[in-house]
Design a protein around this nucleic acid. Structure first.
Lengths: 136, 136
DNA sequence: TATCCCTAGTCTCTTTTTGAGACCATAAAT
DNA sequence: ATTTATGGTCTCAAAAAGAGACTAGGGATA
């Protein structure tokens, strides 16, 4: 990485200047706070593959509550990452699919997920070290 | 992206098989849940630039509470992303710095932050569309 | 000298968020 | 007649986060 010369070192001028990191005026925070929930990446990871229906997602992520699944899907839809289509069957079924914006976000996001998969052992090791030291 | 043929389509076999997404056995979730907090990326972004002391970080992220700053720093330290060094001055000062593992994580993470900076307008637009439609 | 501020936190109290589970209508299958 | 499935909403309890007081010891200020 290049040497940092100014505060907002790695983001362009639209980015988040460290000296003005208040919630309101930071675009990065505005975007990140939505996708950094406990469930968001999980849902995005699923829908990046193919569209799913509500119940399918629920079964895919067994330990999410219906309440949080609903809310997470709403939030992701509101920010434009996923689409919600209702089919007027009886009972009506609902299909969630990833938008172009969602796929575009998922590209860099996938890199992080891959990093997580590749470096899980290092993190576990660090955790074990921490817990066995007197820091714990 | 290549066509997905199996469930854990984009992660290697150490990754997170969608059919076994329970919290316990998914390495990706284990790693992601830590760095996906409201404050984690903010702190990582700061420390990626250079080491900072507790009070400096607090001033950098004005709306974090001391309580959450302490906790976030502890979590990041436990997972091996940052180092905590105490200087026995009076009063003692504490410096937080990013480890090699932290920098390695920050590389893909930066891509996401850059995406956020670049696409903030699209997200805002999507939000406005959603809020003005009858979905809200 | 009395007061205040600085350091990096912790402790308590309140508010917000999340989780668990019941409940909804409708229609088909058992 | 009861169960199953659809995609949710509603309520209540539990967990997490936010606000602010408090700590100690030394330096600066009044």
């Amino acid at each position: 990485m290049a040497v940092a010369t100014k505060r907002s070192f790695m983001l362009d001028e639209q980015g988040c200047d460290v000296s003005e990191w208040d919630a309101g005026n930071c675009p990065v925070r505005d975007v990140i706070e939505r996708i950094s929930g406990k469930w968001s990446t999980l849902i995005l990871e699923a829908l990046a593959e193919k569209p799913y229906r509500f119940g399918e997602l629920r079964r895919l992520v067994p330990d999410i509550s219906q309440r949080m699944l609903t809310q997470t899907l709403r939030d992701l839809q509101r920010d434009g990452y996923i689409d919600r289509k209702v089919f007027p069957t009886k009972p009506p079924s609902v299909e969630y699919s990833m938008t172009a914006l969602g796929h575009s976000l998922f590209e860099p996001l996938l890199k992080v997920l891959q990093w997580a998969a590749a470096n899980h052992h290092s993190v576990k090791a660090a955790r074990a070290r921490y817990d066995e030291s007197d820091m714990a």
